[in-house]
Design a protein around this nucleic acid. Structure first.
Lengths: 105, 105
DNA sequence: AAAGTATACTCTGCGCTACAGAGTTGCACA
DNA sequence: TGTGCAACTCTGTAGCGCAGAGTATACTTT
């Protein structure tokens, strides 16, 4: 069993919150920009930059649409994004599950 | 609020590895500098700086001693360090638990 | 039509931090 | 004495996160 590696793109705390939130919604559903802003506590610009980073990594898909009167940006996780997130979760679980009574390497 | 907060001191990846490794050893035991270097993959200087950060936060105790001919630096987690680590673990679990991993079977 | 509003993005500049690598210290042994 | 080991300190650099200002789009109001 090879130890899973850390994913620094996902590990960053704001992006970790984003990926966690996206991963928690049912497949093929998305979250709105404003919702992510509330979840992460980031400013508009900062959140936009993090989303760009995640999109550049191929982990999320950004969709811009107009619903009635207002613009709405929705974000959904991609298959690669889910895989990467799950892999990082496995890495974290490795760390978190290290028990005081387990001298096993 | 019931949601635990992130601890940025511990969240940093090298320090997370350090705290995880220290938390995994039995109470009142310690790890050697060289062991931590192998675990984290950091250089001497970098590891020393991270240890200083953790010590400054009160999370670890650094003990320098001479054993026979050689200097040995050992590092042990403090009570506050365990608490902080456990708190951060709770925070991460909050995030991870929202992420159903692909069932292996 | 012109101005205003809401949403979300882009850009800029600042400050912090991680990092590698070089240099230093303390001790032991040849 | 000077070589080697272990670990620390220092320095410079590069990159990143962040806030805030400014901008674009589409709709609303007057």
């Amino acid at each position: 069993m090879s130890a899973p590696a850390a994913n620094e793109v996902i590990h960053q705390s704001v992006r970790l919150k984003i990926m966690s939130a996206l991963n928690a919604v049912p497949r093929s559903e998305a979250l709105e920009f404003a919702r992510l802003k509330a979840i992460t506590g980031a400013t508009d610009g900062n959140l936009g930059a993090h989303l760009t980073t995640l999109e550049g990594a191929g982990y999320i898909k950004i969709v811009k649409e107009f619903v009635g009167k207002k613009p709405r940006t929705t974000v959904a996780v991609t298959t690669a994004g889910r895989r990467a997130f799950e892999s990082h979760v496995a890495y974290l679980r490795d760390i978190l599950d290290a028990a005081p009574t387990t001298p096993q390497t």
